[in-house]
């Protein structure tokens, strides 16, 4: 039976192939399902409790398989999301364009919902290829832009906490 007073929100993890979405989720939650769901139906779902001020939230994270030449992100998976994390791999410039396409798809599907732009793999800063000017258009409407590292955990909690806070305002 559902717990009373808990606000659930569906959150999508969007980004190109191997940008580190699953690693970010792993950092954030303890998973229940195997990752093979990614290659079967293209999504893996986890949940995480999050407190925002006095509100207890349950984030249902839809870790959508990264878009590549072989598999497209299914728009139906994005329906009903209250927010999303748009993830770019800081060491691969081409992931910005994939993120841009996914952002467009998200806006079309979900409407204007809060999102956090995450530049991942900050632990590989020496091989950084992505400059802010490249993703300036994506950052413009984001509620937060931050650099993260799923490896060190840097920025992960902040990204989810900020997204939860913004989703609650809507």
């Amino acid at each position: 039976m559902k717990e009373q007073g808990v606000v659930q929100k569906k959150v999508c993890m969007l980004g190109g192939f191997a940008v580190g979405k699953t690693s970010l989720v792993k950092r954030f939650v303890t998973g229940q399902f195997s990752e093979k769901y990614h290659t079967t139906i293209g999504v893996k779902i986890d949940q995480k409790s999050q407190r925002v001020d006095d509100t207890e939230m349950l984030l249902v994270l839809w870790d959508v398989y990264g878009e590549d030449d072989f598999q497209k992100v299914r728009a139906s998976y994005l329906q009903g999301s209250a927010g999303y994390l748009l993830v770019i791999d800081g060491t691969r410039k081409e992931t910005v364009e994939v993120a841009r396409q996914l952002h467009t798809l998200a806006v079309q599907t979900m409407g204007p919902v809060p999102y956090v732009l995450v530049i991942n793999k900050y632990d590989l800063k020496e091989s950084w290829q992505v400059e802010p000017i490249i993703y300036e258009d994506l950052a413009r409407n984001a509620c937060l832009v931050l650099q993260s590292s799923a490896k060190t955990g840097e920025g992960v909690e902040v990204a989810f906490a900020e997204l939860a806070k913004q989703m609650l305002k809507v």
Partner: peptide, 8 residues
């Protein structure tokens, strides 16, 4: 629409 659980 959201796939969120309403009751169980």
């Amino acid at each position: 629409k959201t796939g969120l659980l309403l009751n169980h």
